[in-house]
């Protein structure tokens, strides 16, 4: 089984999000970057599969050299090698085309991603790449088991799940439940230093969208406290003041 896992490099979840004074750029100073949490799930599942059935896991990141520590962490978790497409991502279309360009004809049986990146929340990479490569894409996949070239997958739907059977090659985007993310051990960290990280150049792609500015949500006013024994009052406030019930 030859597996490709696409990873995104995102601010740690504890990060307080701030922007420059023009609100055009995210302030990265002092920010710790990590593998996108959903991608950790995808990567862990890929490693589990190759541990059981044999094969290799390659991680792929589209981004600049500043992401190399994150890629090394993926190698420490157990990926066999890595590819970095050396370019600052412009939009999702750009990244999807880089991924399909690397993957096309390279013989991957399975391509795994995260359901969404926690910075851009694009929620689209798996389906975009699936379309570019003309293979099925299972989005928001909560469970994936392989038997030869046939996989059984659970896809999240409103109020439940859909079970499907799909043949390799296909793409899935990982959601919680697919695996419990692993923490790299000392041996993994040591061996990650010498695993191959191949840097390739980007292909030219049109830009379809651009972020022009950011904003942060308005804070709330002072909280209105209600006495613990006066829940009637709370219900009344929700009805007459907040008008939500």
């Amino acid at each position: 089984m030859k597996i490709l896992v696409c990873i995104s490099n995102v601010p740690d979840t504890t990060t307080k999000i701030t922007f420059n004074s023009e609100q055009t750029e995210f302030n990265t100073s002092g920010v710790q970057f990590v593998i996108n949490p959903y991608d950790e799930i995808a990567l862990t599942r890929a490693i589990e599969i190759t541990e059981k059935d044999g094969g290799t896991v390659t991680v792929l990141h589209v981004g600049e050299a500043s992401a190399d520590p994150t890629i090394r962490k993926a190698l420490a978790m157990g990926a066999h090698d890595a590819i970095r497409v050396n370019a600052a991502p412009r939009d999702a279309w750009f990244v999807a085309n880089q991924i399909s360009n690397v993957a096309n004809g390279a013989g991957y049986d399975l391509i795994l991603m995260g359901r969404e990146s926690i910075d851009h929340n694009g929620s689209q990479m798996a389906a975009l790449v699936g379309e570019l490569m003309n293979i099925p894409s299972i989005s928001i996949c909560k469970s994936l088991t392989l038997e030869g070239n046939k996989a059984t997958v659970d896809r999240e739907i409103e109020g439940g799940k859909e079970v499907a059977i799909v043949e390799t090659p296909f793409i899935a985007s990982a959601s919680e439940g697919m695996a419990e993310p692993r923490i790299p051990n000392m041996r993994g960290i040591m061996s990650a230093r010498t695993k191959p990280l191949n840097v390739v150049e980007a292909v030219a792609v049109d830009t379809l969208s651009e972020i022009i500015s950011y904003d942060t949500p308005k804070g709330r006013g002072q909280v209105t406290l209600v006495e613990a024994d006066n829940t009637d009052k709370l219900v009344e406030l929700l009805h007459t003041e907040a008008k939500v019930i």
Binding site: D91, A92, G122, E156, I157
Partner: peptide
């Protein structure tokens, strides 16, 4: 609509139309 199913195939519609998809 950005439901679980909608999110799952909207990007493919966009790719077929060479359109940008914006979620959320």
């Amino acid at each position: 609509p950005a439901t679980f199913t909608g999110k799952g195939f909207a990007p493919r519609v966009a790719a077929r139309l060479k359109a940008a998809y914006v979620d959320g």
